[in-house]
Amino acid sequence: MSFNSNDDDSQQRFALGFLFALIALVVSTVVGVVVYKRGIAHAPAKPAIVKTVEVTTIGAGGNVIAEDAASVIVMDNGVVKFFFASGKAEVAAGANTALVEVIKGVVEGGKRASISGYHDATGDLVKNQELAKLRAMAVSDALKSLGVAEDKIELKKPEQSQASGSNAEARRVEVTLVQ
């Protein structure tokens, strides 16, 4: 009889231990989910635009381009030029500021933004053409993130994508307003 009593006690202890472990698992899972969700809600948003470089506004004919860094230049004729580091497709910080006039032209003026990507003469031509396309798409994504509708953005392959001038000047994307 004592043998059966020990068996029953052992089974009851096992069942209670299992139940407590299960309850602890459920409680810790709920607490973990709540902490995770609160952390996500308060986490800073991931920026759409990378690198920090100042926006420069210059008149036609002026050359203010860093040799191997991302930058943005707003020309006085309304063209916005994005310059890229060699082998990179990250848009320079300051793109939002530089694109203000383009956004106004699209939203208020009923125009479209035409985006053309160029590349330098160094390296493999096919890879450079693909990189020019990726850069143009990065600028397009910047416009979309600022609220410009996709149907108001036109990716246009220039007649000659290999631009003249220095390599730093050639690695660019130009944004212009068109009807």
Rank of each mutant, 00 (worst) to 15 (best):
residue 118 Y to T: 05
residue 175 V to W: 02
residue 127 K to P: 07
residue 164 S to N: 07
residue 121 A to S: 13
residue 73 I to Q: 03
residue 44 P to W: 11
residue 35 V to L: 04
residue 86 S to P: 02
residue 10 S to F: 08
residue 17 G to H: 11
residue 72 V to C: 02
residue 103 I to K: 08
residue 144 K to M: 11
residue 41 A to N: 15
residue 92 A to I: 00
residue 165 G to N: 05
residue 169 E to T: 06
residue 64 V to I: 07
residue 155 L to S: 05
residue 86 S to F: 00
residue 20 F to I: 14
residue 113 A to Q: 06
residue 44 P to L: 12
residue 26 V to T: 05
residue 57 T to K: 11
residue 62 G to M: 00
residue 145 S to H: 07
residue 122 T to K: 11
residue 15 A to S: 10
residue 29 T to M: 10
residue 65 I to W: 05
residue 65 I to V: 11
residue 48 A to F: 09
residue 177 L to P: 06
residue 66 A to H: 03
residue 38 R to L: 14
residue 157 K to P: 11
residue 93 A to W: 00
residue 94 G to D: 00
residue 37 K to W: 12
residue 165 G to C: 01
residue 54 E to W: 05
residue 80 V to S: 05
residue 22 L to I: 13
residue 12 Q to P: 09
residue 89 A to M: 00
residue 54 E to K: 07
residue 139 V to P: 00
residue 43 A to D: 13
residue 99 L to T: 12
residue 21 A to G: 15
residue 73 I to K: 03
residue 50 V to L: 15
residue 148 V to D: 07
residue 119 H to R: 02
residue 48 A to P: 09
residue 23 I to S: 09
residue 23 I to H: 03
residue 7 D to R: 14
residue 153 I to N: 01
residue 33 V to D: 02
residue 17 G to D: 13
residue 135 R to D: 01
residue 4 N to A: 15
residue 96 N to M: 10
residue 116 S to L: 03
residue 93 A to V: 04
residue 57 T to M: 08
residue 101 E to S: 15
residue 172 R to H: 15
residue 167 N to A: 12
residue 71 S to K: 03
residue 142 A to P: 04
residue 38 R to M: 13
residue 67 E to W: 03
residue 92 A to Q: 04
residue 51 K to L: 12
residue 89 A to V: 01
residue 115 I to H: 13
residue 65 I to T: 06
residue 125 L to I: 09
residue 54 E to D: 11
residue 24 A to C: 03
residue 80 V to R: 02
residue 34 V to K: 02
residue 165 G to P: 06
residue 18 F to H: 13
residue 48 A to Q: 14
residue 48 A to W: 11
residue 25 L to R: 12
residue 12 Q to I: 03
residue 45 A to Q: 12
residue 130 E to W: 01
residue 19 L to P: 09
residue 102 V to T: 14
residue 128 N to T: 15
residue 166 S to I: 04
residue 21 A to S: 14
residue 29 T to S: 00
residue 169 E to C: 08
residue 87 G to K: 04
residue 179 Q to D: 13
residue 153 I to K: 02
residue 152 K to L: 12
residue 131 L to A: 09
residue 110 G to R: 03
